[in-house]
Design a protein around this nucleic acid. Structure first.
Lengths: 350, 350
DNA sequence: ATTAGCACTCATTAGAGGAGAGTGCTAACA
DNA sequence: TGTTAGCACTCTCCTCTAATGAGTGCTAAT
């Protein structure tokens, strides 16, 4: 790809940029006259037409039909994102708006994540998806079996993100509080300070083997732990601004709209979509680059958040390929950092 | 309204029914010829035209424009629902489908409620809203303060529906496990077996007055309890089949669709909408009967579910006024009863 | 009271024509 | 050789018109 800079002269790049900038705002094919007037350089529309024809041949532009202007191809957007956009800081108002919201303290991380999805969709005007903390990355702080009544006890797992997983399990006749307390201690000794991803239930299962009494109880205990770890890993998915897609005329078509909304209802799909991008920082996927067939007309921008530098989860923005990349990338970068700071402050006093 | 039966002869009723039956399926204004052919009675279209003119004058029908067929008015639908529909049982397949899903046991009531919303929207092809258990109706089974580490403890409230509300509160220096256990016991004595709606924090606040040490701790305790009760009452709202509205051509308009989806995103609105109908059994609200301005073009059918006959929550279906009332009412009735049975079996062994 | 017949209404559809935006090409120009 | 003005051409979109047809209301006959 290093050849690009040879292929593409300064002027071509400038024209490509002008076209994409215009198309992102208008959504309409861009003609040579428009560029001749708006772009800084003083060249005639005829010259620009020649350049545009070249750019089309190289695959950066497309033409919906013969007598229309040009629209960027996915390859065009890729070049644009990689080389043409300049970082665009958030406005003071926006930064303040975000900070203000995070100032309302909660210790409920779900609330925070939910808020984040709302903020993202509000600011960007696209659809936001935020994954809750990937539970395999989360540390166990405390496990306890709490008796509720004669028949049931509550298995409780508290993590360093303040999340509490609980499961109700039935206890056999004649098991007393002291017994539960003993088991609690054992569980704590076994699992404390391990991450949910690392822990192995082996020792517990071995223990069970040695037992004659209360095997049923141990079974349900193992089951409950397994479940809270497994189910846990497909972490929560929070969606914000689903209907924002209607703001863009190319999705006024009812079938496209329905298709999109149906995708957004499939939490597992969204999870897979975001969970993949594990690299830190902001990453951009444009149109056809998407693995997912149905999302070939959308772009996705993701960022991660962490506690103490340890990546915990992902947030994403989904919008049309003619997305305001510059603005959106800045927002994602800012939000990733802000959320990470917030969470670190909140949950890291070990 | 008793006059109706005088005003409306047998034949008018029959015609009205035929028109509504047809319109519910087709969504197109119904003409006299259609009725003459389809409805059982052998009358000419001219006669039916006369009857239709009468029905329109009485307010049961409307005419979109002079040379179109008739469509039912909300008043017409009301008459239809109250007097003309016959109960329509579920098909064996449907009943089986539902039973099968409820057979997969979970003790997580949220899961069950979520499933319910999916089932409802799947079977009816409308949008389903299900409210989680109204927490004011739910009984406290157990309260406990569990120390997590030197700085924090977990306040845990277990209810008879298996829901666990938890809050992390910070504990003052030098407070030991035995102290927390003592407080736990006090809380249990005070609140056990009361419903969240009934309990008063008065005694706790009084206790605080008598204290010199640890006032801060008591404050956060009271706060946490207050919060889990208050926030709790706007119970969870589960939505299923949001995009089902797109199945009906009259909502292919992008603005209507967006308006609808925006409404569905407002959980509090949905909560208020359903929480109102507290009477047991199925209730139907048609078009203009809706309090909510924006829902004047929709009909809502609600049913309640209970544990041991004690009403816990509400489920609802939202769809166009030309809804398949007969079918939907049956489904709601069936689901209300099925869910109640299921929950009763699951949570009532006191 | 019912119905056949007919004139009338109005939404919907298809087609024709014109306007406008934009292109590619050619020839002239610096 | 790169740039530009000019022009014919293409294709979409809008508007206008006419035709179609479903459905009505009224009248007169049964």
């Amino acid at each position: 790809m290093g050849v690009i800079s040879v292929e593409l002269g300064e002027r071509k790049l400038h024209i490509l940029q002008a076209i994409i900038d215009d198309y992102i705002i208008s959504g309409e094919p861009v003609g040579s006259r428009t560029i001749a007037k708006k772009s800084g350089i003083a060249i005639s529309s005829a010259t620009i037409r020649n350049e545009m024809a070249d750019l089309e041949e190289m695959g950066y532009l497309e033409q919906p039909h013969t007598s229309a202007g040009r629209i960027p191809s996915d390859k065009g957007y890729r070049l644009y994102v990689d080389r043409l956009i300049k970082a665009e800081g958030l406005s003071i108002n926006e930064a303040k708006y975000i900070k203000d919201i995070y100032d309302r303290k909660t210790r409920h991380i779900e609330q925070v994540i939910f808020q984040t999805s709302k903020i993202l969709s509000d600011i960007t005007n696209y659809t936001a998806v935020v994954l809750g903390p990937k539970l395999s990355r989360v540390l166990i702080k405390h496990i306890q079996l709490v008796p509720i009544d004669a028949y049931y006890a509550l298995l409780m797992v508290v993590t360093n993100t303040g999340i509490v997983k609980d499961a109700i399990i039935s206890i056999p006749q004649g098991v007393g509080m002291d017994y539960l307390a003993r088991i609690s201690n054992i569980l704590n000794d076994l699992f404390k300070d391990q991450s949910l991803g690392e822990i192995s239930l082996e020792p517990l299962i071995e223990m069970r083997e040695g037992m004659i009494q209360n095997r049923d109880f141990f079974n349900s205990l193992v089951d409950a732990l397994t479940e809270s770890i497994d189910i846990g890993d497909i972490s929560e998915v929070y969606l914000g601004g689903m209907t924002n897609i209607f703001n863009y005329p190319e999705y006024h078509d009812i079938f496209k709209a329905k298709e999109f909304l149906n995708l957004m209802e499939q939490k597992e799909l969204l999870y897979r979509l975001l969970a993949r991008s594990q690299d830190n920082g902001v990453s951009v996927t444009i149109g056809e680059e998407n693995q997912c067939e149905e999302l070939r007309e959308y772009s996705i921008i993701t960022a991660t958040y962490n506690i103490n530098g340890k990546t915990l989860g992902t947030m994403g923005i989904i919008g049309p390929t003619r997305m305001e990349y510059s603005k959106t990338i800045s927002v994602m970068d800012f939000m990733g950092k802000t959320l990470s700071n917030y969470l670190t402050r909140l949950f890291s006093k070990e």
